[in-house]
């Protein structure tokens, strides 16, 4: 995902100043993706260049010290709708854990079961820490809850994969 679509989604809700977009985006996404303000202004410049947003006429005169308020254009609305309609693509397998385990299996000097075991401990601790956070989040705080659900289920998938690694390595008699 690019910041571009995130900002377009914010501007589709209402016309706002650039500085307000950062906090609004972070609030909507439960702090999962902190932005820096430079990133926001650079992206706004590109969105304007591509005709997806435009400065709200009048806002510059009234509130010159705060810069433009920005609004989404018809082209920007179409781009945003298309983004929501398009499924997110799958990344190729290149995460460090998968690669590390594959390399450990191939390395006769490395105890691959130990690599798996250490990682499983770390993954389980991450799951416990995320679950602890879940206990503190109210059931009505939907964005925070969904973000934690997402992180927990990813960690769970990792834990399941590590369990499977363990079973397969044992079945093949690998160290």
């Amino acid at each position: 995902m690019s910041v571009r679509h995130g900002l377009l989604a914010m501007l589709a809700e209402e016309t706002v100043h650039g500085y307000a977009l950062k906090s609004r985006f972070e609030e909507r996404t439960a702090g999962a993706w902190p932005l820096n303000i430079g990133q926001v202004y650079t992206t706004l410049g590109r969105l304007e260049r591509d005709g997806l947003i435009e400065a709200d006429p009048g806002s510059e005169v009234e509130e010159a010290h705060r810069g433009h308020r920005w609004r989404i254009t018809g082209v920007g609305q179409n781009e945003l709708r298309e983004w929501y309609r398009s499924p997110v693509g799958d990344d190729p397998v290149r995460d460090e854990l998968t690669i590390k385990v594959l390399l450990a299996i191939a390395d006769p000097g490395t105890d691959s079961s130990e690599v798996v075991h250490r990682q499983r401990q770390a993954t389980m601790q991450r799951l416990q820490s995320l679950t602890l956070k879940k206990m503190e989040v109210g059931l009505d705080e939907v964005a925070e809850m969904l973000l934690l659900d997402s992180l927990i289920l990813r960690a769970d998938a990792e834990a399941r994969w590590l369990n499977l690694c363990d079973e397969r390595l044992r079945a093949r008699g690998l160290p």
Binding site: T123, M124, L127, Q128, L130, T131, I152, L153, D156, R160
Partner: peptide
């Protein structure tokens, strides 16, 4: 289920 075990103090 790891997600349920994670509610525990010790796994």
């Amino acid at each position: 289920d790891s997600t349920h075990a994670a509610w525990a103090d010790r796994v």
